[in-house]
Amino acid sequence: MADDIHTLAGPYALGALTDDAEREAFEDHLAQCAFCAEEIDGLLATSAVLGRAVALPPPPDLRARVLGEIADTPQEQAAHPVRRARRLPRPATLLAAACLVVALAAGAVAVRTQQRLSQETARAQAIAAVLSAPDARTVTGRMSSGGTLTVTSSAARKSAVIAPSGLPALPSTKTYELWTMSGSGVRPAGTVQPGSAPVVTSLPAGHDRIGVTVEPAGGSPRPTTTPLAVLTL
């Protein structure tokens, strides 16, 4: 079913779906499939080039008519808050950061050695620094294998906190591996297991996507399988 609807990516990008109902069904699918949304982003940029390729000089008086009309036309409110516009840390994020720090510290105090404790504290502080950054943004995506990936990133801190949840168990020979991705490269961002705590990773310039794959235990230097999810930050 999901595979079947995904074959509509080409017609969708070309404006060639049958009707509004089919288009809405496909857009619902996109909201649940980070990989598909990523593909559509590129295919729509491509069809836009097909449009630009037939550009013509517009009638000169059109500009004045359009500007006259918009002067009397109210703008619609955003249907949902635009993710990009979220500049201030929300109380919930700060609360989550605080809880995380407490939880990690408490867990650490109970069992860890002093050295391990300071590592955990440093990690908790790094997580809190990202979550409370003024430009922190959170995106969530469902993984095609089940489970979700929540990523909070801050360009100012050049870091991201990746929190997987509900990961299906893997055989002991396999692990989940996280990646930061740019237009030109992929960098490993650590391995996670079901139930793992959130991972902090640095975000090199240009790395604006987070992906997750299944790799042999211990992780791979480069992804060797199809991503279960790719989130655009």
Partner: peptide, 13 residues
């Protein structure tokens, strides 16, 4: 003009 607030940058810019 009307719908600029609903623009989603993840749809081809």
């Amino acid at each position: 003009w009307r719908k600029a607030g609903r623009y989603d940058p993840a749809r081809g810019g």
